[in-house]
Structure formats: C-alpha cells, structure tokens
Design a protein around this nucleic acid. Sequence first.
RNA 1: GCGGAAGUACCCAAGUGGUGAAGGGGCUCCCCUGCUAAGGGAGUAGGUCGGGAAACCGGUGCGAGGGUUCAAAUCCCUCCUUCCGCGCCA
Length: 430
Amino acid sequence: MLDIKFLRTNPDIVKENIRKKFQEEKLPLVDQVIALDKEARSAKLHGDELRAQRKAKSKQIGGLMAKGQKEEAEAIKAEVNAMGEELAALEAKETEMQQEIRKIMLVIPNIIDPSVPIGKDDSENVEIEKFGEPFTPDFEIPYHVDIMEKLNGIDLDTARKTSGNGFYYLCGDIARLHSAILSYARDFMINRGFTYYIPPFMIRSQVVDGVMSFAEMENMMYKIEGEDLYLIGTSEHSMIGKFIDTILDEEELPKTLTSYSPCFRKEVGAHGIEERGVYRIHQFEKQEMIVVCKPEESMKWFDVLWKNSVDFFRTLDIPVRTLECCSGDLADLKVKSLDVEAWSPRQQKYFEVGSCSNLGDAQARRLMIRVKKADGSKYLAHTLNNTVVAPPRMLIAFLENNLNADGSVRIPEALRPYMGGMDVISVPQK
RNA sequence: GCGGAAGUACCCAAGUGGUGAAGGGGCUCCCCUGCUAAGGGAGUAGGUCGGGAAACCGGUGCGAGGGUUCAAAUCCCUCCUUCCGCGCCA
C-alpha cells in the first residue's frame, strides 16, 4: 500500500511502476484515485466546517439553557437541526469515498526496488546464484512418498480416511526427522541472534483483515465454527499481527524474530492440492523469520535473511539456488522478493522451499506499525519475512539428496544431535 | 463457561448529558536557595485526517464499534480486555 501523498505528487512514477509489473489494466486507477482523493478532501473540509459550526452552536445552547433562556435555545436548536441532514449526507459520502480510496490503494502495487528484473510472469524469474553442486546419483531416485513408505515413515491412505486429501501421518524415524529439522532450525536461528517465538495458532477476523486481502482469506483461511477465530496460514499472520497499531521506540529496532507454528491452508484456486505426497498440503509446520527495522536497513536485512536459509540448507548437504522474482511475479505489497529453491535429483530441477520478502513500508502503512525517534517524531517501519524451513516440503529435498542406493537415508552431521546420534535411517527388515 | 467489578494521558485518579476533560505523582525546562534537601513557575491528550508558504487553525479522539440527542467520558446495545469468586481442564 502506497502513501496517497506520494501517489498524488508522483503519479508518473506510480504508473511507470504499474507498467513494469505488466498490470496495464490498473493504470486508470491512478488518475481515478487522485480525482477521488481531491473530492474526498474537499468534502472533508466542508464537513469539518459544518461540524465546527454545529459544535459552536451546541455550546451556545448549553449556555442559554443554563441561564434559563429557553426560547433562544430552542431557536438555535432548530438551526442545528436544519444542518443535520446536510451533515449526515456529507458524512456518509466522506466515509464512502474514504473506503473507495483505500480499496483502490490496496490494489495499486508497491514501488519495486530498482534491482528487480523486469518480466511478465514466473517464467522470467532470474537465477541469481547456486550454492552446492546439483548432484545426481547413479541409481534412480524414487518419488518421495515411495522413499518414505519404504522407511515406514508415512501413511497417506489412513490420513485420507480421517481427514481427507492433503493430510498425512508421519511416523517413526521420518516423523522424528521432521521434528529434528524444526528443532535444529530453531537453534540455528537463535544462534544467529533471533528471538524465538511460539505465537497463537488462531487469530481474530480483525487481524485477518489486517494482514491479508479478502481474496487471500477466502482461498487460504480455515474458520472456526461459532467463534471469531481463524487458523493461521503462516506464523507471519500472528507475528505481524502482534505489531498492528503499535509505536515502537527506535532503540528497540531491529526486531529480529523467529517463530514456529503449524500452518493451515485451504489451497483453493490456482494450484490446489497435490494428489500425492507432501508438496502442497492443508497442514504443515514451519519455522519463519520476521524482521521489523529502520527503512535504511531493510535491504541489508533482506540479504541477511535469504542467506540464513541458504546456509541452513547447506548444512544439511542440500544444493540450493536463489531465484529472484521478476516484476510481474512479485506480489503487489512487495518491494523485492527472492525464492530459495532446493535441488531435486529425481526431477533434475530446483523447486521452491522458501520465500524471502522485503515489504518496504507498505505492510507497515497498512497496519500502522510505526517507530518513534528520540526527538518524538515518527515514521513507518520496514518489514521483512522469510522461511527458515517448512519440513514436510523440505523433506522431499532432504530425502532425495541424502538417499543411499539401498534405500537408507544419511543423516548429515548437523542434524545428528537432534536424532539421538543416528547417522543413518535404515530400511526396516520385513 | 457462570456471577461480580472495572477500563479516562507515562502512572494514579475526579468527572453520571451542556462553555476549554479536574487534581496529584513522575518527567522536561526555568527561577530562588546553596551542599542537598526543599520551595516557586512553566510545559507535559497521544494518535490521526484536513487546510495553510509558515506561524498556526479546524475535525476526530475518554477500551472498540454502533445507537439515542441540538449536544455523549456520562444514557442504550454489541464486542474486547483486566481483576475477584465459582466451575472445568491439559
């Protein structure tokens, strides 16, 4: 969400930015919102004048009543009553226009960083850097569900019975591996100076409205029946929600937080649920990082964040690459975004395991997350978020990259303390 | 979940329909005194929106949102939060 004052004074920059994102259909919105804003401001000015008059006159009534001059009071009362209708109409118009302006402002995309590559859609995203050699063993890598089943580590059939498609039972060493990865990720981030949080896994509708659009809510969020509560789709929802309408002291910054939560997603729409496997599912668990910082530091933190994920995957011997989102694939709220992708030796390609985003001040403007300087002046914070790891999905990369020819799975050194010292998950004897 | 009480500024707190939302503490600045404590004065209602070149002016604002009224901190409705008691429960 842009500052309407910025849009007012720099309509050309805003339009140029819309073109760069290949959203030509939104171009007319700029002039539309400028006109609307002008109208809304003059309506407000007029309304303010009327309200000031009413206030003054109402006070006169009070004075006259106190002195017992009832007739004079009644006369002024009639005057104020006469203003009432005009004011009510004007106030309705003011609210309506304000809502309309906000609605438009929410769909006008944030100004992208100059470094963002220009491109129409995800096919034009740009590979930035590879970390580790994509490795292909001389034996065939099975589908990840088959690897897990051979290790007695997953039961999708029963999960479909109890909960439906998109759920899973993990069991035995695979379940333990899942928890180990999360525990390791938690400690990994704590060691890098992040503060560990376990947030609420349900949030109120008021917070939902703040952190996402209506369309997102419809496609993602599960509602609790009979309660004003929704299951979170990511811990970012409750972690950013924590800062809604707050003023932070500048010396508290940067806030560098890492949060664990289960995530629940309906996955309605474009992609839907994968038929098999744990790639795209209704319920998964995730370790996340969140940063709230000064505007001049957000690009520095952006680099710190994605590097954390890369380092994390490298300690588990998984080759990764970074892929920068091109302008057309970048969500409207984001200034810059970069996906971390893990190597799949089975598919011979990289696939997304995390997404690092710098939202600039757009999220902060929408949610009123502000920072107070020592001199009392205030500004909007910058917010960033990134995935550390989402184990069910990352298990795919983990298993494929650490699989031995006999079907057993190597445990990289970093993870062994979390696996009770195990260095390999062996295939159970029938 | 049930019953009771409450929510006003950095903190405490008065205000139950009417002209600028008292007072105290704390904090900041100034004055007096002069060796360490006290006295006097001033400032301290945020946030946000709008107008203005600026000084400044106006709207809004008493947990949130609605309503009644010429006028709401005050009356009515819904919700949230906190405290106390009871109940239930990892």
